[in-house]
Nucleic acid binder design. Structure first.
Lengths: 232, 232
DNA sequence: TCAATAGTGTCTGTTAGACATTATGGA
DNA sequence: TCCATAATGTCTAACAGACACTATTGA
Protein backbone atom coordinates (compact mmCIF):
# COMPACT_ATOMS: atom_id res chain seq x y z
CA UNK A 1 0.00 0.00 0.00
CA UNK A 2 1.31 3.39 -0.96
CA UNK A 3 1.74 6.14 1.59
CA UNK A 4 0.25 9.51 0.93
CA UNK A 5 2.63 12.02 -0.66
CA UNK A 6 2.78 15.45 0.87
CA UNK A 7 3.43 17.19 -2.38
CA UNK A 8 0.27 15.82 -3.94
CA UNK A 9 -2.34 15.75 -1.23
CA UNK A 10 -2.74 18.34 1.47
CA UNK A 11 -3.93 16.75 4.69
CA UNK A 12 -6.75 18.31 6.66
CA UNK A 13 -6.65 18.50 10.44
CA UNK A 14 -9.19 16.22 12.03
CA UNK A 15 -11.42 17.31 14.85
CA UNK A 16 -11.05 15.12 17.90
CA UNK A 17 -12.26 15.37 21.47
CA UNK A 18 -9.48 16.71 23.65
CA UNK A 19 -9.05 16.81 27.41
CA UNK A 20 -6.44 18.37 29.67
CA UNK A 21 -5.56 15.91 32.42
CA UNK A 22 -3.70 16.91 35.54
CA UNK A 23 -1.42 14.75 37.69
CA UNK A 24 -0.88 16.69 40.93
CA UNK A 25 2.22 15.40 42.71
CA UNK A 26 3.51 16.12 46.19
CA UNK A 27 5.97 14.54 48.63
CA UNK A 28 4.05 12.87 51.44
CA UNK A 29 5.04 10.48 54.19
CA UNK A 30 8.30 9.46 52.59
CA UNK A 31 6.80 8.92 49.15
CA UNK A 32 4.98 10.75 46.39
CA UNK A 33 1.23 11.25 46.42
CA UNK A 34 -1.20 12.26 43.70
CA UNK A 35 -4.61 13.90 43.88
CA UNK A 36 -7.70 12.18 42.50
CA UNK A 37 -11.28 13.40 42.31
CA UNK A 38 -14.49 11.38 42.29
CA UNK A 39 -15.70 10.51 38.83
CA UNK A 40 -19.08 12.09 38.23
CA UNK A 41 -19.57 10.19 35.03
CA UNK A 42 -22.16 7.41 35.38
CA UNK A 43 -20.57 5.58 32.44
CA UNK A 44 -17.21 5.32 34.20
CA UNK A 45 -16.34 2.06 35.88
CA UNK A 46 -13.72 3.49 38.21
CA UNK A 47 -14.79 5.80 41.03
CA UNK A 48 -11.69 8.02 40.93
CA UNK A 49 -10.19 10.01 38.07
CA UNK A 50 -7.50 12.60 37.54
CA UNK A 51 -8.65 16.23 37.68
CA UNK A 52 -9.39 17.36 34.15
CA UNK A 53 -11.26 19.72 31.89
CA UNK A 54 -11.60 20.56 28.23
CA UNK A 55 -9.32 23.20 26.73
CA UNK A 56 -11.16 26.42 26.00
CA UNK A 57 -11.25 28.35 22.79
CA UNK A 58 -9.01 31.25 23.57
CA UNK A 59 -6.49 29.84 26.01
CA UNK A 60 -3.14 28.17 25.51
CA UNK A 61 -2.74 24.61 26.74
CA UNK A 62 -0.57 25.92 29.58
CA UNK A 63 -3.29 28.32 30.64
CA UNK A 64 -5.86 25.56 30.47
CA UNK A 65 -3.75 23.35 32.68
CA UNK A 66 -3.30 26.19 35.15
CA UNK A 67 -7.07 26.62 35.25
CA UNK A 68 -7.66 22.90 35.94
CA UNK A 69 -4.96 23.10 38.57
CA UNK A 70 -6.54 26.02 40.41
CA UNK A 71 -9.90 24.26 40.36
CA UNK A 72 -8.44 21.05 41.77
CA UNK A 73 -6.27 22.69 44.43
CA UNK A 74 -8.80 25.16 45.73
CA UNK A 75 -7.45 28.23 43.96
CA UNK A 76 -3.75 27.62 44.52
CA UNK A 77 -1.28 28.03 41.67
CA UNK A 78 1.68 25.69 41.49
CA UNK A 79 4.34 25.01 38.85
CA UNK A 80 3.25 22.82 35.94
CA UNK A 81 5.18 20.55 33.61
CA UNK A 82 3.78 19.15 30.41
CA UNK A 83 4.10 15.38 30.36
CA UNK A 84 2.81 14.68 26.88
CA UNK A 85 -0.19 13.72 24.82
CA UNK A 86 -1.93 10.36 25.02
CA UNK A 87 -4.39 8.81 22.64
CA UNK A 88 -4.98 5.22 21.69
CA UNK A 89 -7.38 5.95 18.84
CA UNK A 90 -10.17 4.14 20.62
CA UNK A 91 -13.21 5.77 22.04
CA UNK A 92 -13.92 4.74 25.57
CA UNK A 93 -17.17 5.96 27.04
CA UNK A 94 -16.70 9.21 28.88
CA UNK A 95 -13.09 9.50 27.81
CA UNK A 96 -11.65 12.01 25.38
CA UNK A 97 -9.89 10.68 22.31
CA UNK A 98 -6.77 12.67 23.11
CA UNK A 99 -5.56 13.57 26.55
CA UNK A 100 -2.91 16.21 27.07
CA UNK A 101 -1.28 15.72 30.43
CA UNK A 102 0.42 18.07 32.85
CA UNK A 103 2.12 17.30 36.15
CA UNK A 104 1.44 19.83 38.91
CA UNK A 105 4.31 20.15 41.39
CA UNK A 106 2.67 20.77 44.76
CA UNK A 107 5.23 21.78 47.41
CA UNK A 108 5.78 19.66 50.50
CA UNK A 109 2.99 20.30 52.96
CA UNK A 110 0.69 21.61 50.26
CA UNK A 111 -1.47 18.50 50.51
CA UNK A 112 -2.80 19.69 53.83
CA UNK A 113 -4.46 22.87 52.56
CA UNK A 114 -8.23 22.67 52.59
CA UNK A 115 -9.65 21.58 49.26
CA UNK A 116 -13.01 22.92 48.22
CA UNK A 117 -13.87 19.74 46.47
CA UNK A 118 -14.21 16.08 47.24
CA UNK A 119 -10.65 15.21 46.36
CA UNK A 120 -8.16 12.90 48.02
CA UNK A 121 -4.42 12.43 47.98
CA UNK A 122 -3.28 8.86 47.36
CA UNK A 123 0.19 7.44 47.76
CA UNK A 124 1.35 6.69 44.21
CA UNK A 125 2.24 3.17 45.30
CA UNK A 126 -1.28 2.56 46.57
CA UNK A 127 -3.59 4.11 44.03
CA UNK A 128 -7.18 2.95 43.68
CA UNK A 129 -8.27 1.32 40.43
CA UNK A 130 -7.99 3.74 37.53
CA UNK A 131 -9.00 3.48 33.91
CA UNK A 132 -6.17 1.95 31.85
CA UNK A 133 -5.20 5.15 30.16
CA UNK A 134 -5.25 7.11 33.40
CA UNK A 135 -2.91 4.54 34.87
CA UNK A 136 -0.50 5.02 31.98
CA UNK A 137 -0.76 8.77 32.37
CA UNK A 138 0.16 8.69 36.06
CA UNK A 139 3.07 6.37 35.36
CA UNK A 140 4.34 8.62 32.57
CA UNK A 141 4.07 11.71 34.75
CA UNK A 142 6.11 10.15 37.54
CA UNK A 143 8.60 8.82 35.05
CA UNK A 144 9.03 12.23 33.48
CA UNK A 145 9.66 13.85 36.85
CA UNK A 146 12.20 11.22 37.79
CA UNK A 147 13.97 11.27 34.46
CA UNK A 148 14.24 15.04 34.21
CA UNK A 149 17.70 16.33 33.42
CA UNK A 150 17.20 19.39 35.54
CA UNK A 151 16.49 17.45 38.71
CA UNK A 152 17.30 20.47 40.86
CA UNK A 153 14.48 22.56 39.50
CA UNK A 154 11.93 19.78 39.99
CA UNK A 155 13.19 19.14 43.50
CA UNK A 156 12.98 22.77 44.56
CA UNK A 157 9.50 23.11 43.16
CA UNK A 158 8.40 20.18 45.29
CA UNK A 159 9.53 22.09 48.37
CA UNK A 160 8.29 25.25 50.09
CA UNK A 161 10.51 28.35 49.89
CA UNK A 162 12.21 27.46 53.19
CA UNK A 163 13.27 23.89 53.82
CA UNK A 164 15.82 21.81 55.69
CA UNK A 165 18.63 20.03 53.88
CA UNK A 166 17.24 16.72 55.12
CA UNK A 167 13.97 17.53 53.35
CA UNK A 168 15.81 18.50 50.18
CA UNK A 169 17.75 15.26 50.28
CA UNK A 170 14.58 13.24 50.84
CA UNK A 171 12.95 14.79 47.76
CA UNK A 172 16.05 14.09 45.70
CA UNK A 173 15.98 10.50 46.86
CA UNK A 174 12.33 10.18 45.83
CA UNK A 175 13.19 11.47 42.39
CA UNK A 176 16.30 9.42 41.73
CA UNK A 177 14.94 6.36 43.51
CA UNK A 178 17.95 5.60 45.66
CA UNK A 179 19.62 6.69 48.88
CA UNK A 180 22.13 9.53 48.68
CA UNK A 181 25.21 10.13 50.78
CA UNK A 182 24.44 12.86 53.32
CA UNK A 183 27.88 14.40 53.69
CA UNK A 184 28.51 14.35 49.95
CA UNK A 185 25.11 15.83 49.22
CA UNK A 186 25.65 18.74 51.56
CA UNK A 187 29.22 19.41 50.51
CA UNK A 188 28.22 19.62 46.89
CA UNK A 189 25.24 21.86 47.55
CA UNK A 190 27.51 24.23 49.39
CA UNK A 191 30.25 24.13 46.78
CA UNK A 192 27.77 24.81 44.01
CA UNK A 193 26.09 27.55 45.99
CA UNK A 194 22.61 26.38 45.07
CA UNK A 195 21.18 26.89 48.56
CA UNK A 196 21.41 29.77 51.03
CA UNK A 197 21.15 29.34 54.79
CA UNK A 198 18.47 31.34 56.58
CA UNK A 199 18.79 32.56 60.17
CA UNK A 200 16.04 30.17 61.21
CA UNK A 201 15.89 26.73 62.70
CA UNK A 202 13.07 24.23 62.96
CA UNK A 203 12.62 21.44 65.48
CA UNK A 204 10.53 18.33 64.96
CA UNK A 205 10.25 17.84 68.72
CA UNK A 206 13.18 15.53 69.07
CA UNK A 207 16.75 15.69 67.96
CA UNK A 208 18.82 18.73 67.13
CA UNK A 209 16.86 21.42 65.26
CA UNK A 210 17.65 21.75 61.57
CA UNK A 211 18.65 24.97 59.91
CA UNK A 212 16.33 26.27 57.19
CA UNK A 213 17.60 27.05 53.71
CA UNK A 214 16.25 28.60 50.56
CA UNK A 215 17.21 28.19 46.96
CA UNK A 216 19.96 30.62 46.04
CA UNK A 217 18.83 33.34 43.61
CA UNK A 218 21.38 32.52 40.90
CA UNK A 219 22.22 28.92 40.29
CA UNK A 220 24.30 29.08 37.17
CA UNK A 221 27.09 29.11 39.68
CA UNK A 222 27.12 25.33 39.58
CA UNK A 223 28.08 25.50 35.95
CA UNK A 224 30.47 28.41 36.34
CA UNK A 225 32.46 26.68 39.04
CA UNK A 226 32.51 23.48 37.08
CA UNK A 227 30.61 21.38 39.59
CA UNK A 228 30.10 17.93 38.19
CA UNK A 229 27.67 16.55 40.75
CA UNK A 230 25.37 14.29 38.83
CA UNK A 231 22.27 15.63 40.48
CA UNK A 232 22.68 19.34 39.88
CA UNK B 1 -14.85 34.82 39.98
CA UNK B 2 -15.43 31.36 41.25
CA UNK B 3 -13.72 28.34 39.67
CA UNK B 4 -15.78 25.39 38.60
CA UNK B 5 -16.02 22.61 41.17
CA UNK B 6 -15.43 19.10 39.96
CA UNK B 7 -17.88 17.56 42.32
CA UNK B 8 -20.71 19.66 41.00
CA UNK B 9 -20.17 20.07 37.29
CA UNK B 10 -18.85 17.36 35.02
CA UNK B 11 -16.80 18.87 32.20
CA UNK B 12 -17.30 17.73 28.66
CA UNK B 13 -14.39 17.19 26.32
CA UNK B 14 -14.25 19.78 23.57
CA UNK B 15 -13.68 18.89 19.96
CA UNK B 16 -10.68 20.65 18.52
CA UNK B 17 -8.70 20.31 15.31
CA UNK B 18 -5.60 18.26 15.94
CA UNK B 19 -2.46 17.71 13.89
CA UNK B 20 0.54 15.47 14.32
CA UNK B 21 3.68 17.41 13.47
CA UNK B 22 7.00 15.77 12.83
CA UNK B 23 10.48 17.20 13.41
CA UNK B 24 12.91 14.89 11.59
CA UNK B 25 16.42 15.38 12.95
CA UNK B 26 19.73 14.06 11.67
CA UNK B 27 23.41 14.88 12.14
CA UNK B 28 24.73 16.59 9.03
CA UNK B 29 27.94 18.47 8.23
CA UNK B 30 28.89 18.98 11.85
CA UNK B 31 25.47 20.15 12.94
CA UNK B 32 21.87 19.00 13.13
CA UNK B 33 19.49 19.23 10.19
CA UNK B 34 15.72 18.99 9.96
CA UNK B 35 13.45 18.03 7.07
CA UNK B 36 10.85 20.46 5.75
CA UNK B 37 8.27 19.97 3.01
CA UNK B 38 6.72 22.58 0.71
CA UNK B 39 3.51 24.01 2.07
CA UNK B 40 0.67 23.17 -0.28
CA UNK B 41 -1.71 25.45 1.56
CA UNK B 42 -2.46 28.62 -0.44
CA UNK B 43 -3.39 30.37 2.82
CA UNK B 44 0.06 29.83 4.30
CA UNK B 45 2.53 32.68 4.20
CA UNK B 46 5.63 30.54 4.61
CA UNK B 47 6.68 28.21 1.79
CA UNK B 48 8.05 25.46 4.04
CA UNK B 49 6.37 23.50 6.82
CA UNK B 50 7.09 20.50 9.00
CA UNK B 51 5.76 17.17 7.71
CA UNK B 52 2.38 16.56 9.29
CA UNK B 53 -0.96 14.84 9.08
CA UNK B 54 -4.14 14.47 11.06
CA UNK B 55 -4.44 11.59 13.53
CA UNK B 56 -6.75 8.87 12.26
CA UNK B 57 -9.64 7.34 14.05
CA UNK B 58 -8.26 3.98 15.02
CA UNK B 59 -4.58 4.63 15.55
CA UNK B 60 -2.60 5.66 18.60
CA UNK B 61 -0.70 8.93 18.44
CA UNK B 62 2.54 6.95 18.20
CA UNK B 63 1.22 5.02 15.22
CA UNK B 64 0.07 8.25 13.61
CA UNK B 65 3.49 9.78 14.04
CA UNK B 66 5.10 6.66 12.55
CA UNK B 67 2.80 6.98 9.55
CA UNK B 68 3.70 10.63 8.99
CA UNK B 69 7.32 9.67 9.38
CA UNK B 70 7.18 6.95 6.74
CA UNK B 71 5.46 9.31 4.34
CA UNK B 72 8.06 12.02 4.86
CA UNK B 73 11.11 9.74 4.68
CA UNK B 74 10.06 7.69 1.71
CA UNK B 75 8.91 4.63 3.61
CA UNK B 76 11.72 4.43 6.13
CA UNK B 77 10.96 3.84 9.80
CA UNK B 78 13.08 5.57 12.40
CA UNK B 79 12.81 5.97 16.19
CA UNK B 80 10.36 8.61 17.39
CA UNK B 81 10.21 10.68 20.54
CA UNK B 82 7.18 12.65 21.62
CA UNK B 83 8.10 16.27 22.24
CA UNK B 84 4.79 17.55 23.53
CA UNK B 85 1.55 19.26 22.60
CA UNK B 86 1.31 22.85 21.45
CA UNK B 87 -1.72 25.07 21.20
CA UNK B 88 -2.09 28.77 21.71
CA UNK B 89 -5.86 28.80 21.61
CA UNK B 90 -5.85 30.93 18.51
CA UNK B 91 -6.96 29.82 15.12
CA UNK B 92 -4.48 30.61 12.43
CA UNK B 93 -5.55 29.94 8.87
CA UNK B 94 -4.50 26.49 7.76
CA UNK B 95 -3.17 25.60 11.19
CA UNK B 96 -4.66 23.10 13.62
CA UNK B 97 -5.70 24.34 17.03
CA UNK B 98 -3.57 21.73 18.73
CA UNK B 99 -0.36 20.29 17.40
CA UNK B 100 1.14 17.15 18.86
CA UNK B 101 4.80 16.97 18.04
CA UNK B 102 7.23 14.11 17.60
CA UNK B 103 10.95 14.20 16.88
CA UNK B 104 12.14 11.59 14.38
CA UNK B 105 15.73 10.46 14.97
CA UNK B 106 17.19 9.84 11.53
CA UNK B 107 20.57 8.08 11.72
CA UNK B 108 23.69 9.73 10.37
CA UNK B 109 23.75 9.40 6.59
CA UNK B 110 20.01 8.87 6.45
CA UNK B 111 19.50 12.27 4.90
CA UNK B 112 21.01 11.06 1.66
CA UNK B 113 18.40 8.40 0.90
CA UNK B 114 16.15 9.32 -1.97
CA UNK B 115 12.94 11.00 -0.85
CA UNK B 116 9.82 10.44 -2.86
CA UNK B 117 8.58 13.88 -2.17
CA UNK B 118 9.71 17.45 -2.61
CA UNK B 119 11.38 17.67 0.77
CA UNK B 120 14.64 19.30 1.83
CA UNK B 121 17.00 19.03 4.77
CA UNK B 122 17.94 22.35 6.34
CA UNK B 123 20.65 23.03 8.87
CA UNK B 124 18.78 23.88 12.08
CA UNK B 125 20.87 27.04 12.39
CA UNK B 126 19.82 28.19 8.92
CA UNK B 127 16.14 27.37 8.63
CA UNK B 128 13.92 29.24 6.21
CA UNK B 129 11.10 31.37 7.58
CA UNK B 130 8.55 29.25 9.43
CA UNK B 131 5.20 30.06 10.97
CA UNK B 132 5.66 31.21 14.58
CA UNK B 133 4.31 28.04 16.11
CA UNK B 134 6.38 25.83 13.83
CA UNK B 135 9.43 27.75 14.93
CA UNK B 136 8.59 27.11 18.57
CA UNK B 137 8.00 23.45 17.81
CA UNK B 138 11.39 22.97 16.18
CA UNK B 139 13.11 24.75 19.06
CA UNK B 140 11.28 22.60 21.61
CA UNK B 141 12.18 19.41 19.76
CA UNK B 142 15.88 20.26 19.68
CA UNK B 143 15.76 21.34 23.29
CA UNK B 144 14.14 18.09 24.33
CA UNK B 145 16.77 16.03 22.52
CA UNK B 146 19.60 18.01 24.09
CA UNK B 147 18.13 17.94 27.57
CA UNK B 148 17.33 14.25 27.60
CA UNK B 149 18.58 12.39 30.65
CA UNK B 150 19.30 9.28 28.66
CA UNK B 151 21.67 10.98 26.26
CA UNK B 152 23.20 7.68 25.27
CA UNK B 153 20.02 6.31 23.78
CA UNK B 154 19.39 9.48 21.76
CA UNK B 155 22.99 9.50 20.56
CA UNK B 156 22.93 5.89 19.41
CA UNK B 157 19.66 6.38 17.60
CA UNK B 158 21.21 9.22 15.64
CA UNK B 159 23.87 6.82 14.39
CA UNK B 160 23.79 3.80 12.09
CA UNK B 161 24.36 0.37 13.65
CA UNK B 162 28.09 0.55 12.96
CA UNK B 163 29.95 3.79 13.67
CA UNK B 164 33.36 5.12 14.62
CA UNK B 165 34.06 6.51 18.07
CA UNK B 166 34.82 9.86 16.50
CA UNK B 167 31.31 9.89 15.04
CA UNK B 168 29.83 8.93 18.38
CA UNK B 169 31.73 11.69 20.10
CA UNK B 170 30.64 14.21 17.47
CA UNK B 171 26.98 13.33 18.05
CA UNK B 172 27.43 13.64 21.80
CA UNK B 173 29.00 17.03 21.30
CA UNK B 174 26.06 18.15 19.19
CA UNK B 175 23.69 17.08 21.93
CA UNK B 176 25.51 18.57 24.90
CA UNK B 177 26.65 21.61 22.99
CA UNK B 178 30.30 21.56 23.97
CA UNK B 179 33.57 19.84 23.14
CA UNK B 180 34.36 16.60 24.97
CA UNK B 181 37.72 15.20 25.96
CA UNK B 182 38.67 12.46 23.54
CA UNK B 183 40.72 10.23 25.82
CA UNK B 184 38.24 10.55 28.67
CA UNK B 185 35.31 9.84 26.41
CA UNK B 186 36.86 6.65 25.08
CA UNK B 187 38.11 5.41 28.42
CA UNK B 188 34.69 5.76 29.93
CA UNK B 189 32.92 4.08 27.03
CA UNK B 190 35.26 1.15 27.40
CA UNK B 191 34.93 0.96 31.18
CA UNK B 192 31.16 1.07 30.96
CA UNK B 193 31.11 -1.45 28.16
CA UNK B 194 28.51 0.46 26.18
CA UNK B 195 30.18 -0.14 22.83
CA UNK B 196 31.63 -3.23 21.20
CA UNK B 197 34.42 -3.17 18.62
CA UNK B 198 33.73 -4.80 15.27
CA UNK B 199 36.40 -6.41 13.13
CA UNK B 200 36.01 -3.67 10.57
CA UNK B 201 37.76 -0.44 9.78
CA UNK B 202 36.74 2.49 7.68
CA UNK B 203 38.95 5.02 5.95
CA UNK B 204 37.91 8.53 4.94
CA UNK B 205 40.70 8.67 2.38
CA UNK B 206 43.19 10.35 4.62
CA UNK B 207 44.50 9.62 8.07
CA UNK B 208 44.52 6.35 9.90
CA UNK B 209 41.38 4.28 9.33
CA UNK B 210 38.96 4.20 12.23
CA UNK B 211 37.66 1.04 13.83
CA UNK B 212 33.92 0.50 13.67
CA UNK B 213 31.88 -0.14 16.79
CA UNK B 214 28.33 -1.05 17.61
CA UNK B 215 26.25 -0.46 20.68
CA UNK B 216 26.74 -3.26 23.18
CA UNK B 217 23.66 -5.46 23.66
CA UNK B 218 23.33 -4.86 27.41
CA UNK B 219 24.14 -1.47 28.79
CA UNK B 220 23.01 -1.76 32.37
CA UNK B 221 26.64 -2.58 32.88
CA UNK B 222 27.33 1.11 33.28
CA UNK B 223 25.12 1.11 36.33
CA UNK B 224 26.31 -2.25 37.62
CA UNK B 225 29.92 -1.17 37.60
CA UNK B 226 29.07 2.13 39.16
CA UNK B 227 30.20 4.29 36.28
CA UNK B 228 29.43 7.91 37.04
CA UNK B 229 30.21 9.46 33.70
CA UNK B 230 27.81 12.32 33.32
CA UNK B 231 26.93 11.47 29.75
CA UNK B 232 25.94 7.85 30.12
C1' DT C 1 58.68 12.64 4.44
C1' DC C 2 54.70 15.13 5.56
C1' DA C 3 49.93 15.78 6.70
C1' DA C 4 46.01 14.06 8.82
C1' DT C 5 43.38 11.33 11.61
C1' DA C 6 43.03 7.36 15.12
C1' DG C 7 44.14 5.84 19.38
C1' DT C 8 46.86 5.37 24.07
C1' DG C 9 49.82 6.28 28.46
C1' DT C 10 50.71 9.01 32.34
C1' DC C 11 49.92 12.51 35.66
C1' DT C 12 47.23 15.52 38.70
C1' DG C 13 43.47 17.98 40.92
C1' DT C 14 38.90 17.04 42.27
C1' DT C 15 35.26 14.57 44.06
C1' DA C 16 31.86 10.82 45.68
C1' DG C 17 31.34 7.87 49.14
C1' DA C 18 32.79 5.44 53.63
C1' DC C 19 33.32 6.14 58.28
C1' DA C 20 33.73 8.30 62.45
C1' DT C 21 32.91 12.16 65.27
C1' DT C 22 30.96 16.26 67.21
C1' DA C 23 26.78 19.35 68.09
C1' DT C 24 22.32 20.33 69.97
C1' DG C 25 17.88 19.73 71.17
C1' DG C 26 13.97 16.97 74.20
C1' DA C 27 12.63 13.51 77.63
C1' DT D 1 21.92 10.71 81.24
C1' DC D 2 20.15 8.84 77.13
C1' DC D 3 18.21 9.17 72.65
C1' DA D 4 17.46 11.19 68.30
C1' DT D 5 18.59 14.02 64.69
C1' DA D 6 21.78 17.63 62.59
C1' DA D 7 26.11 18.68 60.87
C1' DT D 8 31.11 18.18 59.99
C1' DG D 9 36.09 16.23 59.49
C1' DT D 10 39.17 12.95 57.39
C1' DC D 11 40.57 9.43 54.34
C1' DT D 12 40.64 6.87 49.97
C1' DA D 13 39.57 5.03 45.54
C1' DA D 14 38.10 6.62 41.28
C1' DC D 15 37.60 9.66 37.70
C1' DA D 16 37.73 13.87 34.38
C1' DG D 17 40.63 16.47 32.00
C1' DA D 18 45.42 17.99 30.44
C1' DC D 19 49.19 16.77 27.77
C1' DA D 20 52.16 14.28 25.23
C1' DC D 21 52.89 10.52 22.72
C1' DT D 22 52.47 6.54 19.35
C1' DA D 23 50.03 4.29 15.22
C1' DT D 24 48.49 4.02 10.58
C1' DT D 25 46.95 5.50 6.36
C1' DG D 26 47.40 8.51 1.67
C1' DA D 27 49.90 11.78 -0.99
Amino acid sequence: MRERLFSVVRPTARRASVAIDLVPVTPMRGGLATLLVPSMDPRAREPWILPWDAPRDVETLDDGAARVCRAALGGRSVPLEQVGAFGDGQRHPGEAEISITFAALVPLGGASVALEIEARWFDVDALPALAPRQQRIVAAALESLRARLDLASVAFRLLPPAFTLTELQAVYELLVGRALHKASFRRTLQAAGVVEPLAEWRSDGRGRPAQLFRRAPVDDRAIRRGVRFELL
